[in-house]
Amino acid sequence: MSDNPNNWPLWEVFIQSKRGLDHKHVGSLHAADPQMAIENARDVYTRRQEGQSIWVVPAAAISASQPDDAAMLFDPADDKTYRHPTFYTMPEGAKYI
């Protein structure tokens, strides 16, 4: 985004709050290198015991879908309700299914 080579690049930060849960995007920050990005993420985003594991990704390395493609990408799933368990009628009295 910036022309000055002395500006630290932007990183996206993902924190896992507890073992077994997903890493969740929490925000971004600037850092000169990956190690610093992790340390900064620790200092910025886990001051209140929010995490137990950190991922950092250079913001420039993320590819994102285009909002204009949203209809094409996601609407086709709308009519495939048979992918959901509630689509099916179970006989009265059947258990554990």
Binding site: S2, N4, N7, L10, G27, S28, H30
Partner: peptide, 16 residues
């Protein structure tokens, strides 16, 4: 810092 980051999503740089 959170807010500068939010502003950056709109195409500004923190430096600017």
């Amino acid at each position: 810092l959170y807010l500068y980051s939010a502003a950056e999503t709109l195409g500004t740089s923190r430096e600017q």
